[in-house]
Write a protein that binds this DNA or RNA. Structure first.
Lengths: 330, 330
DNA sequence: TGCGGTGGAGTAATCGTTTACTCAGAAACT
DNA sequence: AGTTTCTGAGTAAACGATTACTCCACCGCA
């Protein structure tokens, strides 16, 4: 593979001049620039990234470590990050931690070893992984979930309030025995959604009961089983569901139990998905501004890369309830 | 950040010994190994990836360039690739080319510059990007779509046959004016699905008509418009839809036109998705073995990294028709 | 005791860039 | 003209690992 020396030899200049011509850092005789460019093209020269990064002590690459590539919420974040990063010449590598602290650890190690310019992550409950980055002063932004007691730029959705509003909406529509299917304990979004749900019930003077709450991983299978149990033993008349994958499980369980969403059991789920309007009745959802979370996170990260001394900020975005048929008795 | 020299100094040995102790390439006195390990841990030493890659002339990283992160088909492939790569110590970086030759080009450049060990890609119609890799002998596997006239390992689904069988299924169920909504011309999977559709009609002696075919990007919006037009002007009694994003658009158009899937307009779509069973009637789909495509592609790539001289192979996997209510008149 | 062989550790070259430093020549002064 | 300033290009020293090569000490054998 052609190196900078090959280009220099072909253009009849020094490697320093090639480097300067290609990077435009300092002025070079236009005549020489032309010769260098011609030689580089002729040889199909591509700079050696590792060598460049070794010398520069930084790569124009951001790492984005997300919890689940198969969750549309996180892929939308990824798009937001990419779109911003690309406009300023950074590449984004997407790493799928799969809600698994070991995989997350592995990707954090890769990010450190490859000396990426910065990291955006939706952290697992195991804070030690993020601490690895924090201790090295690697620019870091937490997205979707905060890092407790760590001074780190953070982009969140006010998911507790959103859960409260969703629950209040169900109460307003006349549902009284409202259940909640949320994610694992320790995952902040799961905890917050449960808190918001309880906030609404308490404010309305409705007794909350642990028998109406189920916690499981953020996937369809667990949610299906959880919903089936709730339906069998606790006769809820509505369910608040913490994400879209879980929603498919819950809806499947309703179908099996022969219970119609909306009319018989109200359903509100987090995350607006393409199919929400296709089912009958259409699914009422809490739409999170995922793409925007990605763009904001990327901007924060770029700002921190430019100035690691700036104070850490927390940006909280609002979610939006989209009322559809699954939460109406009519 | 701690370097290998720091570790060497603390352990009282040379950098060579540290390297050997850490990589286990050659035998080192267990006593020294212990000292080195202790020092490395104490200093939180993480090897400098760029320096290592520069010297080794290769990184233990695979690049996976996919057409659309928001398409579950591709994220399932990504999981397959990751699962295989991780078992042998490779990391996978996921790049979203977004069906866009420019973005693809950009990621190909990054892959070349970072000297990744190999690349798996679902190529856009612009073959020049893949040629960049081929010309440099970068190990490469094409997935989902072939690279015409290039000797490259390839993993495909027999999508033409699958489209034919799906169409035959619709014919067998008594639908006669079958339309097709497929992807852009030049994208092989889109072309093949159209060909399979025509194969089935011809074999059944049904006249094919361009008025029953629409081509658009592989997304919901275009498909929705296309389906609306077909319904308004060509009165199809069934539709074959080339992927799941398009299926949401088609189903929305059917809803707007007040036409019920199955009973009035039969629908078969490519890709089995979680919500296929939730809609009414449930969606008949062509399930592609996406995860398996990913595992096979990763295995081929690893084999080629180990021996770049091996002959190129093409693996074709079968898709499976899953009959549900949307293709039954009853 | 002397000698070849061997295992294990250190020395230093190397990978391909970027960039601090140097230097020659031209331009702009006095 | 002589001196200073400036511009632009070349020289060579990093960056931090891996590894070919060297060397020392020790072992076994005659």
């Amino acid at each position: 593979m052609a190196t900078i020396s090959d280009v220099a030899a072909m253009a009849g200049v020094s490697t320093a001049t090639v480097s300067r011509a290609l990077n435009g850092k300092s002025t070079v005789d236009p005549e020489l620039v032309a010769r260098v460019l011609a030689a580089a093209k002729e040889l199909g020269y591509q700079p050696n990234g590792p060598a460049r990064n070794l010398r520069r002590q930084e790569a124009a690459v951001l790492a984005l470590i997300i919890s689940d590539v198969e969750n549309p919420f996180f892929t939308a974040i990824a798009r937001g990050v990419e779109d911003v990063a690309h406009t300023v010449g950074y590449s984004v590598v997407l790493c799928n931690a799969d809600e698994n602290a070991d995989k997350e650890r592995r990707y954090v190690d890769v990010a450190i070893q490859e000396r990426v310019a910065g990291v955006i992550m939706s952290p697992t409950p195991d804070v030690r992984n993020a601490d690895l980055l924090i201790n090295r002063n690697t620019p870091l932004v937490a997205v979707d979930r905060p890092l407790p007691d760590r001074l780190v730029d953070t982009v969140l959705v006010d998911t507790r309030l959103a859960a409260r509003q969703a629950t209040e909406h169900l109460l307003a529509k006349g549902y009284t025995r409202i259940g909640c299917v949320t994610g694992p304990s320790g995952v902040r979004t799961a905890d917050d959604r449960l808190s918001g749900y309880r906030d609404a019930l308490r404010a309305a003077g409705v007794r909350t009961s642990p028998r109406l709450v189920r916690r499981t991983e953020f996937r369809a299978a667990g949610a299906r089983k959880a919903a089936a149990e709730l339906l069998a033993h606790s006769s809820p008349d509505a369910l608040l569901v913490a994400n879209s994958a879980m929603a498919t499980g819950v809806l499947a369980a309703l179908g099996e139990a022969g219970r119609r969403p909306g009319r018989e059991v109200g359903v509100v789920a987090f995350d607006d998905v393409a199919w929400a309007e296709l089912i009958d009745p259409p699914l009422t959802v809490v739409a999170q501004p995922a793409y925007e979370m990605g763009t904001v996170a990327a901007q924060l990260l770029l700002a921190r890369i430019a100035d690691n001394g700036r104070a850490a900020t927390t940006t909280t975005l609002a979610a939006r309830l989209i009322e559809r048929g699954s939460s109406h008795r009519g």
